[in-house]
Design a binder for these strands. Structure first.
Lengths: 206, 206, 206, 206
DNA sequence: GATGAATGAGTATTCATTCAT
DNA sequence: AATGAATGAATACTCATTCAT
């Protein structure tokens, strides 16, 4: 059988770690199915095929398990993004690659999507952490005199919101590569490139 | 005392209409304070200084009162926007004006903001209705050969998300005219204008 | 239009009497549709096309309107039964006639049935009042040396229960003359007649 | 202390089974005290000395607990009746024995009576199940050329209603053996026996 | 007298949390 | 550590009753 991400990490660990991992995986699945609001502890434990009381041996409350799951996922996504981007120096190429890879990673694990998107609202710290990577690339682009913007939190939020829309749209209507290209072009335009230049950069990258 | 929007409309109406209006106003306030998820019927009735049973004389459930409140607000916003825009023919000017006015209207009634923003998720029909105005202006801009985009639902969602971020940011950090200018410039860039042209259009408009 | 029984009686009376009568008629209808347990005051007033507050101008509570309606119906049934029986002296003939007529009257006004049947449980006084007519005929039959029974409350209840079953069965499966004959024969048997004699008496009467 | 019927059955079972049994016993008691209509979940749980939420760990709603209690009681009554009747072949003797034993069993457990009697109305299936035993004995009696009747649902209802009256009367005025004899004689009369023969059969049996 | 809006006590139901086993 | 039964606070919703118009 296919294990969830956390159970996979916990393979070979102790029983406690494996139980905990199973709860984290279950929490992710349940959020994907029912959303964060409708989430019940008993949904998590029954998805993990455990007694409901077991939950409290590992977490104090709903928020705790969700926070931990969200950070775990975010960490894994960062790891994969780092992999994809470690040799790229050109800032526009980095931003386009990051955008496209991020969307692709999430759409390959759609059960992660709900939690990630909701965390934007529920876990401001997570959003801030994630933003730092983007901020670095934007500042790099400004330094390279490629981007014509002031790098600010507001700008970061704007770009993140464009990416978020690209993800939610594809979760609704199904995967669609063209939308990835489209959103990358819009981001490039937003960063100061002309439509033609934006198209060229994106086409050269993904 | 200052009345809420609905009580204001209901002035001179019958007792039933006034009570109903008070509940709509109260629902808006409570959503602004606690969010839509945490909303309890008893919050609404106690904010309206009524017995909880009174709620059910006027609405069947939470959704009904929220839907009605959201549509009422949307209608009022549309009315004001129409006012601001009735004589503008240039598409970019229309888009910039609409964006700026919309943000200003919401920020003048911050208690409307939560409901409006949440309605994007909860009332897809409302979002679709509102989108039509924007779509018309985008298509006008394409016809005028000012905008270099394909008008699609995806594009509409992208632009709406930029505006949404501008609102939520100002709700958090306080009103800031510069952000209105910034988001309008980004939208102009996204629609195909160069940074310089975008700046000029926005500066000429707001 | 056809009026209910009480409005019919109240024709020509004052407005107050007519409103009251309309409520009594409405109560009967609603009991017939929903049963006594599910009965709501607002059901009665809306069936009577009145405001719910009007109810309390005429009755103190549910029980009062139901009691009054039940007695009114019982009185009307008695009147009709008296009519059918005033010239009959033979006790077995009286009992068979009463049984058959009672069932027929109720089945002609099926909206009366629910209230009458329920009143057996809810209004012991009504049941006792009605029983007196039957008791008189039974005692007459004993005096005539036709019935071989001790007349007791228990016996009355037994006979009434047989009649009740005949009514409820026909309310469920539809009217069926044969069941009237059958129940009359069973009552005659119960009162001491042989099956053959019972059949003859019933056949001669209805 | 004396346990209720279900707790008695559940002795030695697990905690879950015992709690469930306690709720079933409590439901029976509460129905006996207040009737089925007035029954509240909180009545049941407080009679069982539990928190109200516990009810929902075991039953979905009122109907479910009542249905289960009614079937449990009916099963126990059947068991006892079977015991009393297993060696009796003569149909009239069987009917008289069954009638008398049924009444006696119920009057020994008066808290069962309300539920059983109400179940006639609320659980048509239960009534139908119970009727089958009576039907078998009536058909046996017809085959033995002892009973002069057509066996029909209507006849079954009639006899059941006579028994029901015998029970309710004794619940009201106290136990009274003579009424058992009386109702058995009436049933025998109804099945075609003369008063004298009916008396003899009943006297020989109980 | 009639109206019907407002009231609020009463009840069912859910679910996070505890804790004995 | 895991279990899962029990708990009870929280909340939605109903409807008899009141009372100002």
């Amino acid at each position: 059988v296919e294990l969830g991400h956390f159970r996979d990490l916990a393979r070979g660990g102790g029983k406690r770690a494996r139980t905990r991992a199973a709860l984290l995986d279950a929490a992710i699945l349940v959020v994907a199915e029912k959303g964060m609001e409708a989430l019940k502890i008993s949904d998590i434990t029954s998805a993990a095929e455990m007694a409901n009381g077991t939950f409290y041996n590992h977490f104090n409350d709903k928020d705790e398990v969700l926070r931990e799951a969200a950070y775990g996922i975010a960490f894994e996504i960062s790891r994969q993004l780092d992999d994809d981007m470690k040799d790229i120096v050109d800032a526009p190429t980095r931003v386009v690659t990051a955008t496209n890879s991020f969307i692709e990673i999430i759409l390959h694990k759609p059960e992660w999507a709900s939690l990630m998107l909701a965390s934007g609202t529920y876990l401001p710290q997570l959003r801030a952490d994630v933003s730092q990577f983007l901020r670095a690339d934007l500042e790099r682009g400004v330094a390279q005199e490629k981007f014509e913007v002031d790098v600010s939190d507001f700008l970061l939020q704007q770009i993140i919101s464009l990416v978020t829309v690209a993800i939610t749209t594809q979760l609704e209507i199904g995967r669609n590569k063209a939308l990835n290209i489209e959103v990358c072009e819009y981001i490039m335009r937003l960063l100061g490139f002309s439509p033609a230049k934006a198209r060229k950069i994106v086409a050269a990258t993904i």
